[in-house]
Design a protein around this nucleic acid. Structure first.
Length: 648
RNA sequence: CGGGGCGUAGCGCAGUUUGGUAGCGCGCACGGUUCGGGACCGUGAGGCCGGAGGUUCGAAUCCUCUCGCCCCGACCA
């Protein structure tokens, strides 16, 4: 035990404060200097946090509960899962259920606090709702049934139905409808940070998809749609601040709002290698969208080419036995049809039969969809274009019956049913496509001359396609949804009777919005994004410790210098871990890198002989020699420069 | 829920085909030597072989049932 700790404990025991009963009034006598290096601080008791026990221990690795693993646990596959387990941040208890160890808890707390700060700044108020909920609220909105197996249901001893909260729209709407009666009480934005429970069909990726997870969920209540949009915009701004402050590379993506429509929903996608979502983002502007709904600018080639529709010869029917796929068509024409030199998939058109259904009316319709040969149909976009709830590709038999030809030979020419054409397919000046007759294809197909259809954006966007907004190249990413903002409208308030009286005394439904952030998921996504072969590389803002002081050996001067720097950093408000373990240097370096602490100060005999310590950043770069006397100041500056917050 | 894989010491694994005293590496404890990039030597502790039934003189091993975990998909966000 070192000198300071000893003195502190002795002091506490002597004065009988061990039991903490005098917590509120406990103030260090000024005669006991707390920190010899910073007398100014010590002299002012108000600046120093004094604990109930009357002393303050150093955060020593020797005593810290940081169980690191050399080997990779078998069940872990994604980088974040492997590293969070290996570095001792979390332990698994069951599929999608994790224990947060001290390091993990520190990170979680830091993330949550950044979220809180921005939420509060945006005018939201934190509260805490129950996780255990009576079934009546979900029954009121129908979600008791519609939520399905993902709802964790339970019964109490009297057999009443309960569930664990997977999200809290109902319960908060109930609170607000009981308490809010007047437009004067609005707007209101209430949020909580709490464990959520969902019985996921398949938990996966460690913390990325859990059955129990920490979430910040906020709900806004407004008098009108216009006001709600303002609340929504405020939350969007707050989310930008949050994700930026967390140090995450992210994109805001328009979610597929399906039949609900509108631009009132956005996902904050953290870009990673292992994400569940495919997203498309512009390399130049802010455009980004879920791959399912992303749009690209139609290829410019068609307009630029000298060949115009007028120059294209009339249709030529070519016998193409056993030639069905686009690749086969290209190869066949290359070998057998000299009139179409240099045929590529991009100059073919591909025709597909879809069956679209509208769930509410039960109506279904069969349509022919035409896309360019090298493109794929975007089924979500097709749904939207058709106003359908779902679409599926027709079976081979259905195709034959509907088209009168087999799937490989169908085409738009002469087709009389509903025909939708992707803009890029329509732009192909002289296309090769099926002839609607076995086994024939047409060459020289011209949209507008040989067939006519509704033109729309119906294809999936690919890497390198052009941005609809600015024309720059689009890039595809994998993303993990870290946050979601959207306007709920009066969906819940109508069902639950959450109303207010407006200025004219008219009773109206409250217009709601909801805003979620997956706090525990963000911890994992941060690791997905910030790691290397050696371990985690936390962004400064959410690192469990900002600095680790790695002490090599236990020589008197080494210990003194390390302790001095540690205490100085602590006094400056830096989160420091002191590695005082009796381990060989290699072990300490490896652990420091595995844990991912952004800054490392190595105190060892070698540098100390010159009056220096070594300073190294986890993100890379060479070790730097710092004079012992300057170390605290320089390192503190670096912590701040990297976005670290000083506490106390 | 469909498909595939796996449960043996804290972690990683062998042993199962062909039934016969439960092993290896790491980690852990103790002693010694080491000490700037996961050291070395010696000694030692630690396992109801996921669980239940069955077959057998005898089961980690064979049979039946069950529970759990991972991956792909469906689902979800």
């Amino acid at each position: 035990m070192d000198e300071v700790d000893q003195r502190e404990q002795h002091h506490a025991v002597k004065h009988g404060y061990k039991d903490g009963r005098h917590r509120a009034h406990r103030v260090r006598p000024s005669s006991t200097p707390r920190c010899p290096e910073h007398p100014a601080r010590s002299a002012s008791p108000g600046l120093v946090m004094v604990t109930a026990a009357g002393y303050k221990a150093r955060m020593r690795y020797r005593q810290a509960f940081i169980p690191t693993l050399k080997e990779v646990p078998k069940d872990a596959t994604s980088p974040s899962h492997v590293l969070l387990l290996r570095a001792g941040y979390v332990r698994m208890v069951g599929a999608g259920i994790y224990e947060m160890l001290p390091l993990g808890h520190r990170v979680l707390t830091k993330i949550a606090n950044i979220v809180r700060r921005e939420m509060n700044a945006a005018g939201a108020q934190e509260l805490l709702l129950p996780a255990l909920l009576p079934a009546e609220y979900f029954r009121e909105t129908g979600r008791w049934d519609s939520f399905g197996d993902a709802l964790v249901r339970l019964k109490d001893r009297r057999g009443n139905d309960y569930h664990l909260g997977p999200t809290h729209e109902e319960i908060i709407t109930d609170l607000v409808r009981r308490e809010v009666k007047s437009y004067r009480q609005l707007p209101l934005n209430l949020y909580q940070v709490q464990m959520k429970f969902r019985d996921e069909a398949r938990p996966r990726g460690g913390l990325l998809r859990c059955r129990e997870f920490m979430m910040k969920d906020a709900y806004s209540f407004d008098v009108s749609m216009e006001a709600a949009e303002k609340s929504y915009a405020t939350m969007r701004d707050a989310y930008h601040a949050i994700f930026t402050n967390l140090g995450l590379h992210y994109r805001v993506v328009r979610a597929d709002s399906g039949a609900m429509g509108g631009s009132t929903s956005a996902e904050f996608q953290v870009l990673t290698q292992t994400g569940e979502d495919a997203i498309v983002a512009c390399s130049s502007c802010e455009y980004a969208a879920n791959a399912e709904v992303a749009q690209a600018r139609p290829a410019a080639g068609a307009a630029a080419t000298a060949v115009t529709a007028a120059d294209v010869p009339a249709l030529v029917k070519v016998r193409t036995p056993k030639v069905k796929s686009i690749d086969e068509v290209v190869a066949f024409f290359e070998a057998n049809v000299p009139e179409t030199p240099g045929l590529t998939p991009a100059s073919c058109i591909k025709s597909l039969v879809y069956v679209a259904t509208n769930v509410t009316t039960g109506a279904s319709e069969t349509v022919l969809v035409v896309v360019r040969g090298d493109h794929e149909v975007n089924e979500v976009g097709l749904c939207r274009h058709l106003g359908a709830d779902e679409v599926r590709m027709a079976s081979e038999d259905e195709v034959k019956q509907h088209m009168g030809a087999a799937p490989g030979f169908i085409g738009p020419v002469g087709y009389t049913g509903r025909l939708v054409v992707d803009a890029d397919a329509a732009a192909v000046v002289s296309a090769v496509g099926g002839a609607n007759e076995n086994p024939f294809h047409y060459a020289n197909i011209v949209h507008g001359r040989d067939y006519h259809g509704e033109v729309g954006n119906l294809r999936l966007v690919r890497n390198g396609d052009l941005c609809v907004v600015c024309g720059a190249a689009l890039e595809t990413y994998k993303g993990i949804e870290g946050g979601h903002v959207f306007i709920l409208g009066t969906h819940y308030s109508d069902k639950m009777g959450a109303t207010f009286l407006d200025e004219g005394g008219v009773q109206r439904s409250i217009v709601m919005g909801c805003y979620g952030i997956g706090v525990s998921r963000l911890m994992a996504t941060a690791v997905e994004q910030h790691h290397d072969d050696a371990g985690i590389r936390w962004p400064m803002a959410i690192a469990p410790f900002q600095v680790i002081v790695t002490m090599l050996g236990d020589a008197e001067d080494t210990t003194a210098a390390a302790t001095q720097i540690y205490d100085g950093l602590r006094a400056a408000g830096v989160d420091v871990l002191l590695d005082d373990r009796d381990e060989r240097p290699g072990v300490k370096f490896k652990d420091a890198e595995l844990l991912g602490i952004p800054l490392r100060v190595t105190v060892g005999a070698r540098a100390l002989a010159e009056g220096n310590v070594e300073f190294k950043e986890r993100s890379g770069g060479d070790a730097l020699a710092l004079p012992v006397a300057d170390a605290v100041t320089k390192i503190t500056e670096r912590v701040v420069a990297l976005g670290g917050e000083l506490t106390r």
